[in-house]
Design a protein around this nucleic acid. Structure first.
Length: 280
DNA sequence: TCCCAGGGTGTGG
DNA sequence: CCACACCATGGG
């Protein structure tokens, strides 16, 4: 794939290598908006990228070229990942429909976003998080949008504030987790230094973070690929395409991780996206 | 009116 | 370890 890093933009020469709609709509990120036809803004912490489809190419305009070059995961070869998955399970090819990439997201934003995601739907999750950004985040006039709020900005938020945003019973989880994340024990660099198993145990001590949400955080926020988040869609996929043996969600996750090893996260995301687009 | 959504917590076995 | 009720909210 041909990607050019320029002064204030990243240019992808062929859209067959980079499908921004699929990347944004596959359920890994909630802080984005289609501001125009074929034109999106993505918000990561206090940084914004404007992504526009221009003919057969795509341009990512941003003041943080290096940050978003990593964010959009241009250092990863997805053809190689697909081959490794097919090497393990040739029948998996039917789930390779859309060109997905996994975004390297900010851990804090990922933790808070996926606490909101629990037993919720994507449209509502997006709305709640956008309202949270409007109320507590910094206005970025260059893009006419609000940054995702920092922990410091959120430290003033109360349970009632989050309830007014529509977060419901998750409001208390947000307050408690925001408070905990500001202690030394949960410093981002320290967390990133932990092995996946220990990091998961650490994440599970946060209110509102259970096995599934922890796996999403590990994958999208910490780049750990040996995880397999199991939600309602993945559970349906397991029984429809893989086995009729009744298992708990944790057992389903273990079944897939054992099978796909360090490509588990990617396989999960292809499967999830496939299910979401083939509800029939 | 019940079911579902990128489920988690708390309690009881 | 498992099963279960309960949890806000809006759309189908």
């Amino acid at each position: 794939m041909i990607v050019e890093k320029q002064n204030n933009k990243i240019v992808i020469k062929d859209n067959k290598d980079f499908d921004i709609k699929s990347i944004l709509e596959c359920g890994q990120i909630f802080s984005y908006k289609e501001i125009d036809k074929d034109c999106f803004i993505v918000i990561s912490q206090n940084k914004v990228a404007k992504i526009c489809i221009i003919g057969s190419t795509t341009e990512i305009q941003t003041n943080y070229v290096d940050y978003f070059f990593n964010f959009f995961d241009f250092n990863t070869d997805y053809d190689k990942i697909k081959k490794r998955i097919l090497d393990i399970d040739p029948s998996f090819s039917k789930f390779f429909v859309r060109e997905i990439r996994i975004l390297n997201q900010d851990p804090i934003q990922t933790i808070l976003s996926f606490i909101v995601s629990a037993n919720n739907n994507i449209k509502r999750i997006k709305g709640i998080l956008e309202k949270m950004s409007i109320q507590f985040g910094t206005f970025l006039k260059e893009y006419n949008c609000y940054a995702f709020p920092s922990l410091k900005q959120l430290s003033h938020a109360t349970e009632d504030d989050f309830k007014k945003l529509g977060a419901g019973y998750r409001s208390m989880y947000l307050v408690e987790t925001i408070s905990k994340l500001q202690t030394h024990e949960y410093e981002a660099n320290y967390l990133q230094s932990l092995p996946t198993t220990e990091l998961k145990l650490k994440l599970l001590t946060l209110k509102g973070v259970g096995p599934k949400v922890a796996d999403c955080i590990l994958f999208f926020g910490f780049g750990r690929t040996d995880v397999f988040p199991v939600d309602t869609w993945i559970r349906k996929a397991y029984y429809k395409y893989f086995s009729t043996t009744k298992l708990s969600d944790t057992q389903i996750s273990n079944y897939f991780v054992k099978k796909y090893a360090n490509t588990s996260g990617y396989a999960q995301q292809y499967l999830y996206d496939y299910m979401l687009n083939n509800k029939e």
